[in-house]
Design a protein around this nucleic acid. Sequence first.
DNA 1: CTGAAAGCGCTTACAG
DNA 2: CTGAAAGCGCTTACAG
Lengths: 343, 343
Amino acid sequence: MPSVRDIARMAGVSPATVSRAINNHPTVGKEVREKVISLMNEKRYVPSVGRRQITNIAFAYADDISLGSPFDAALMHGMSECMERFEFDLMVLDLKRVLQPHETYSQMFIRKGICGAVLRTSSQSKKVCERIAAEGFPSVVVGERFDNPLVNFIYADSRRSSREAVEHLINLGHRKIAVGLNVVEDSDHLDRLQGYKDALAAHQLSFDSRLVLQVPARRDGGEQFIRRLEVMPDRPTAVYLTDPVAAVAAMVEAQRRGMRVPHDLSIIGFDDAQLRFLTFPRMTAVCQDAREIGMAAFAALQSLIAEAKSTRRVQRVLGTEFEVHESTAVPPVLRHEGVSIAM
Amino acid sequence: MPSVRDIARMAGVSPATVSRAINNHPTVGKEVREKVISLMNEKRYVPSVGRRQITNIAFAYADDISLGSPFDAALMHGMSECMERFEFDLMVLDLKRVLQPHETYSQMFIRKGICGAVLRTSSQSKKVCERIAAEGFPSVVVGERFDNPLVNFIYADSRRSSREAVEHLINLGHRKIAVGLNVVEDSDHLDRLQGYKDALAAHQLSFDSRLVLQVPARRDGGEQFIRRLEVMPDRPTAVYLTDPVAAVAAMVEAQRRGMRVPHDLSIIGFDDAQLRFLTFPRMTAVCQDAREIGMAAFAALQSLIAEAKSTRRVQRVLGTEFEVHESTAVPPVLRHEGVSIAM
DNA sequence: CTGAAAGCGCTTACAG
DNA sequence: CTGAAAGCGCTTACAG
């Protein structure tokens, strides 16, 4: 394990300068600071108390902290189960808050004795994750996908399952299918829209952008979705909502407004954990296992830290599962006409 | 801020011995170690990296980690909102795992640069919280109550609201009311049972222990509850479930088995966050605000740490609210007979 | 079981 | 902007 002295020797500067570089002292020259920080990343420097190394792992939010959502809760749950096997401690960080002026992310992590980070982001803050990766700091993003080859991520691709979900509706006889999308355009929600489009295309149905409603990924988003659906001319007979809480809220709101689910309206939701079993009727849903994502991220980070060189990339795409439960059925029109569908 | 040198002087030993005491060196004499650790607690010692102090706060589980539950998710959410205002970092700990053999809790906290802990416990591990408090380490327990005057806690007492809830059922005309209790006998669940008994007593109804069903505070607990209810001779017409997930699961399971809620069965649940709005019909429930508990705990800890002496006690009992929604109604018998209740 | 001394790790006036 | 030196914080053989 390198000390400031070791890093100093490698960078060709004094230990004093290395210390100043870590602690973001304003007098350190730009090139020198960059060289020192990049060496620290490369050599996996961590500060010590006396001679004891500090070894923390961060669960860091690039954007607003969303602990409290089922996805984040399940992620934390998964990570905490992995902690048992490893010797690390888990630190929750708000990246926007902890960064000092003119400080790089690596500096901040090193300052806090953090040797690796699981990153949580939205589409707006992907740049933050890319910067952290570019600095060479061991990190894994959960729940977002990147084209940038430097960024490590564990991601569940829901496009195929979303296509299956919408095809399930088409096969039941639905022709007008609305989709409820998160207002924030994260990769995962765009996958789900893409799967929706795939299904329509495969069945020669034309895509109508008026059927795509963007709502917040919250309870009131789901409620808003149903209110907007209700005033649509020639109302859709089925919907696919891409957020768990919004989906459940939509189902409840539909029922509150007198629609029977699935009799009058078929609903497919999304599930990170176990919400689909907590609705009546049980919610047909595209399901990802956020707990598993958390565990995989922790394990990946563990091996990234263990490796001396930071050459290996972890870009793991997990699958999702489409599960048919009870919130989907033949549309009312067909049921009344007694038509049977052959598809 | 005291250093090992300062602590050594105060304890009348050498800095070497202080260091050995922190790091749980087996050769340190029992009395000496206890004296040193207690001085560290009293004087709020924290280790330093060079001359920089480490200041972490722990969210520590005395028992199994239950991140992932709505209560824990909401707690974390509340704490994370407080982090913005304070300069601390939050560390998630599994107390059973991080403790080295023969090490006290204070030693472990100090070793990790933690200067205060929010403790999460169950009835089985209350002793752990008492020991931490007795050691003098700044800590606040969330979600449990203690008679021990040394233990700081933030607790929501649901006894009165539970009584109101059950009286609401009695006033509707219910006479046979079952209660679904957590198999783990935590203070909060016992409050709810007590509130149930209070309500019965106030209306001259006798308590029947066969109506108290203990089930796990999980989905399958709620399902199990309904199955057990169904085979009871002279089945109860109303139930009170003291856990959020079990309550929702019970409601769904009842509906799956053909009971109409509230027509055939009235259900009152418990809510930590927003689950009551995610069921159809909306769930009448006793509600606590776990987010607020998290925020209050963080703020209390902050002031405990700031104070030089650890004489102040924080034993705050918050309230809960009983909210009538749509899962409760007049029992079927009375409805059929057209009887109106005057109470 | 404990201390004096050596010594590592890191930081900070001080000097240039 | 940087280094040599001083120095604090903590730990660890070594000695008793």
